[in-house]
Every structure is written in structure tokens, then in C-alpha cells.
Design a protein around this nucleic acid. Structure first.
Lengths: 129, 129
DNA sequence: TTCGTTAACGATAATCGTTATCGTTAGCAT
DNA sequence: ATGCTAACGATAACGATTATCGTTAACGAA
């Protein structure tokens, strides 16, 4: 296995992702970084997101058709708004014993977990209900 | 809005899905039903899965690239095996207070939730670890 | 500092799951 | 039986992601 080389593009992608809280798609990041790195290719964004994810530096959110990414790797959950389609963070103090209970009732090995809520975000729930 | 009509295809899809526990993809169901309904079209499978899902009769599992479906609509969670790629059921008695805690700490409205564990299924965890 | 190796890049073609289109079929109310 | 149109089957289109390939640049060794 070869050493991973440093790259401006990967740095920029990670930095951009960690500085925002809207859980962008690969394309969102691409357009966000394009002014800063005009020669950037969308393929490079996908490549680096995959790499950063397998390195455990970012999180992939499986929400609907398009994958979204999160630079916050601390334990937290997400909610997809049925109205605006946005993805929002939900911070709990712990996992509510979910992993322990799951480990007790499942005859396999649990490595990680993710929770995806659906509902209405603060803004949309105030407007309509 | 027009009334939903009955169709053999939809019946067969729902029945097939409810009789199995492997969380098949649309294509899995298509090939499974093809001998029984030779004229079946893959588009029909997709159409009916979407309809059954919006009717609340089945559940869609967002696991990786391909959507999978589950005929069991009772509360339970899933685990994706990192080894074999299969999706397995995890039954807990309740949601461990997840929804309540989330509602308390989130200024929006929560409608539903899903939990996806990753790890190793019983069979794969016995073989390797 | 220069050189050689090759990881990573940019551009773009290919892939693949899913959705849309459209002419035909069949469920069901009249 | 007849008419209306939801649902069908076949297939084209779509969109997100991945693979390919020639070029560029990171970085260890000379």
C-alpha cells in the first residue's frame, strides 16, 4: 500500500465541509470551491469525499437519492425536512443505549450506527405544521 | 384524486415482499416474480414499490447505493454487514426513548425515524471477526 | 536541486439505479 | 356491454456516481 499524498484539493474540500453545517452534496461542494480552485473537477470532489470518508474524517449521510456529507464526526443524528428537503443536525447527549440494546438482541457485531429522522425543520414547522 | 385500482402485479409484489426477510431490491423482486408473471416489467415493480411505500404498507431502506424494501412495517432497525453486504433485522422492544429525546432537543417536528447499524452479521462475525 | 515514480488530478465517457414517456391493457363504475 | 382511465409493458431519458486515461505534481532518493 502506498502512502497517501498531500493535495490542495483534498485540504480545501475538508476545510470547506468542516466550515459549514448544511450537509452539502458533492456538487454543492464543487460549486462552492470552484471560484477558489477554478481548475477543480467534480470527479476530484467525489474521489476525495470517498477517501475522507474511509479515513473517518467525514460522515456520509444517506438521505434520499443524493448523498450528503458532514464534517462533524462527533456523535449526532440528522433530520430530513419533508417540506424544504434540508438536512438538520440533532444532538443528543448519548445514543440512548441504542448500541448496547442492539448488541444484546443481535447475534452479530455492531460497529457503528446512524439515525435519520424525518419531519419538519424549525423554520418549516413554524410556517405550516 | 382517483381511486386506486386493484392489480395482480401489486398484490404479487406485496405478497412476495412480505414472505421474505432478505430486504430485496426492486430488481430482486422483479426476478423473483418473473417466473410467476412472465410479462412483468421492471418499471411496474418500481412503480408499485413507490406506491406501497407511500401507502405505508412497506418500508424503504436507504442502504448504500441501491434501495431495499421491507414488508415488515413494525418498528425495527437494520444492520448492513460490512462483509457480505446483506441487510439484517434488529428488533428492540422500543425506540429507547430516541424520538422523545430528539423531540426535546430539536426545535422542529419529528414524524418518523430509522436506524441503520453497520457491522457484521451473525454468519460473517463467526467466520472472521 | 534535479530526477523518477506514481498518487492525484482534470476531462469526460461509461455505468447503473431509478424515473418519465407513451401506446396498450384491464379494473371497475355506469 | 361500454366508457373512462389507472395501471401496465417496453423502453428512452435522467441524474448521481464511478471508471478511464492522459497529464500534473507530491515527495523520496540520487
Amino acid at each position: 500500500m502506498q502512502a497517501q499524498r498531500h493535495s490542495k484539493q483534498r485540504d480545501a474540500i475538508l476545510e470547506n465541509l468542516c466550515s459549514r453545517y448544511d450537509h452539502p452534496t458533492a456538487e454543492d461542494l464543487y460549486f462552492s470551491l470552484k471560484p477558489q480552485i477554478p481548475a477543480l473537477s467534480l470527479a476530484t470532489v467525489y474521489r476525495n469525499l470517498a477517501q475522507l470518508e474511509s479515513d473517518g474524517k467525514i460522515i456520509r449521510i444517506e438521505s434520499g437519492t443524493t448523498k450528503r456529507y458532514d464534517g462533524n464526526i462527533n456523535l449526532h443524528y440528522h433530520l430530513t425536512c419533508l417540506d424544504c428537503g434540508g438536512v438538520f443536525d440533532i444532538f443528543l447527549n448519548d445514543d440512548c443505549g441504542l448500541c448496547q440494546k442492539a448488541a444484546e438482541s443481535f447475534d452479530g457485531k455492531i460497529v457503528s450506527h446512524s439515525v435519520l429522522f424525518t419531519g419538519y425543520c424549525p423554520s418549516c414547522s413554524k410556517q405550516a405544521g
